[in-house]
Design a protein around this nucleic acid. Structure first.
Lengths: 235, 235
DNA sequence: CGTGCCCTTGAAGATCTTCAAACGCAGTGG
DNA sequence: CCACTGCGTTTGAAGATCTTCAAGGGCACG
């Protein structure tokens, strides 16, 4: 909870203002796999993750599921819902038991009026999100699967990387299927790609678990640098 | 210029406030094909299109270009640059001679402080953008090319549709290449797809010109409704 | 009338998906 | 303690979709 105070979302708020904002929130626990909100529901609340993680997904007409993003502690979900306020554009499912702070739309609007810096913070936040989604859009449109997977792993390392002896562990349950839904690929292609990288010693992986053994090599694939003295695998 | 007053961006501003905001802007004309700003440049200004159209693009490492969006009169470009304010995430090229209003970052920040409703309007705007990009992301990840092209055309009709005798004309120069860059496909695939639709009487097209003859059929392809009494072409 | 640019079409081929079958680890219950 | 069972994973083979490459057509504009 005190971690929230240092979140960029609440930066620039005076101590009392921050307290006021936080006490206006409604606290809620979402169990593993349960949803905080669902795509298409009327969007009536704004969420910030206090502890745990939310998985934001959309589904296509044919039931094909896509993961837009993971939302970690101190980050906001449904930021947009609070403004154009029609329906949630995505479903937020908890990955492990997750604590969220919830503000109703009305409360949020009131807070925004009372603490203008909040609006600026939200603008910054939405800007970053937009920037990131646009970049992923470009990647999806122009790049091969292997590179997209590499990029996804690099991002996950930033979000949930933890050093272990073997390298950097991505500290959350991460199945091939999940990676596939993040990259617009299939479970099978992801599995093949990871197998190849494992053979090359770039990663070590197991059931819902990935460790990056040679981050540099992975970044090389993600960024299209010539993989220093190694068999080429992308392109 | 007076059209700008009714733009959602400036909604809720008192008459004098609106005038103040507009006079703080720097006016500029961008010639056809010239750029208002380029991807990667330090982002120091915020633009609103007064007349004409901007094309927002990103390029990948291999020079592959992607069109993120067209920005028409009353719409903002580089909305995000003004806040996380590092570099422009995209290049904005004029489609035909285009008039833009430009605010420096400092001016914009000052205006946001003075007119809080502006910040709320921007939040709404960014929300809509984010929502749209996320949806396109999902489409790119899960849908076939034909449907993506259909969706792109449907969106373009909303943005630049004009009724003519043959149907609805998309009132801007629209090459196969452009459509390809909007949908993550190649020029060739787009050409083949449009040829097929032309043979089915759904569209009429020529050099950089597309007319939707049977909008309903196009929407059917875009949304995966069974194409009422017609040869199926998607899926 | 030429020239440039956009468009078309075909054929070959790469990438990725789809489908099928089987493996292996983890947790459960006997 | 062991077998069972579920679920994530692996791997192969076939095939679809889309791209790539090549050649040529046609319209608009100078």
């Amino acid at each position: 909870m005190e971690a929230l105070g240092s979140s960029p979302l609440f930066a620039g708020l005076a101590r009392e203002a921050l307290a006021a904002v936080l006490t206006a929130a409604h606290e809620r626990t979402v169990e593993d796999g349960e949803t905080a909100f669902r795509e298409g529901e009327p969007a009536d609340s704004f969420c910030v993750v206090a502890a745990g993680r939310l998985k934001l997904t959309q589904v296509g007409p044919e039931g094909h599921e896509v993961i837009l993003r993971f939302v970690g502690p101190g980050e906001a979900a449904a930021a947009l819902a609070a403004f154009d306020g029609t329906t949630y554009p995505a479903t937020a499912a908890a990955v492990g038991a997750t604590q969220v702070l919830v503000w109703s739309r009305a409360e949020l609007q009131a807070l925004l009026g009372r603490h203008p810096v909040l609006a600026l913070n939200l603008l910054r936040l939405l800007s970053e999100r937009l920037r990131e989604v646009q970049e992923r859009f470009r990647e999806l449109a122009t790049e091969r699967v292997a590179r997209r997977i590499a990029r996804a792993l690099v991002r996950l390392v930033r979000q949930a990387g933890r050093k272990v002896e073997e390298g950097v562990l991505i500290d959350m349950p991460l199945s091939r299927q999940t990676l596939a839904e993040m990259t617009g690929a299939t479970l099978f292609t992801v599995s093949r790609t990871l197998s190849e990288w494992e053979a090359q010693g770039i990663i070590r992986s197991g059931r819902e678990r990935v460790v990056i053994a040679r981050p540099h090599a992975l970044v090389a694939i993600a960024e299209d640098l010539p993989p220093a003295g190694e068999v080429k695998s992308s392109k």
